[in-house]
């Protein structure tokens, strides 16, 4: 998965309340067995949950950061967010789809939009007065 993010110029940063020491040992003893060469991005230590609190994902009862995912554009603007409670994992393919959609919108300067269910290569909407009332002609759900 990670090479795909690199190709898309996306820097991944992971965050949990574990210390750098725990990150190191987890990477070395377990993750390196799943990912060749170990984890290829910085693993942030948020011991006191300070980052989690600011991003609205810190669970003070459990003392952990729950699954929050924030896509931040090159200007520092949060374009997408997803927050899940711990027992359900994310779908990386959906994240990649959203990255591609937001990158397309940015590349077109907002002239094109990605409708519901958009996947790379499918029809975008050309935003403008001509589209008003005519979405049905170009977009079939």
């Amino acid at each position: 998965m990670y090479p795909e993010f690199e190709k898309l110029n996306v820097q991944v940063l992971s965050v949990s309340v574990d210390s750098m020491f725990v990150h190191k040992v987890w990477d070395e003893t377990e993750l390196a067995k799943m990912v060749d060469g170990g984890i290829p991005f910085p693993m942030i230590a948020d011991g006191a949950g300070n980052l989690g609190k600011v991003y609205g994902v810190y669970d003070s009862n459990a003392g952990v950061d729950i699954r929050g995912r924030f896509l931040i554009d090159p200007d520092g603007v949060i374009q997408a967010a997803e927050i899940l409670t711990p027992p359900v994992g994310r779908n990386v393919q959906e994240t990649i789809r959203q990255v591609k959609a937001f990158q397309l919108v940015r590349e077109t300067g907002g002239a094109e939009a990605c409708p519901s269910g958009w996947t790379p290569g499918s029809t975008t909407l050309k935003v403008g007065p001509d589209l008003v009332g005519n979405v049905w002609k170009v977009w079939k759900p």
């Binding site: 996306v10 965050v15 929050g68």
Partner: peptide, 11 residues
Amino acid sequence: KWVLLCFYPGD
């Protein structure tokens, strides 16, 4: 750059 900031409960 684009940044994907991912929080998770624990190692």
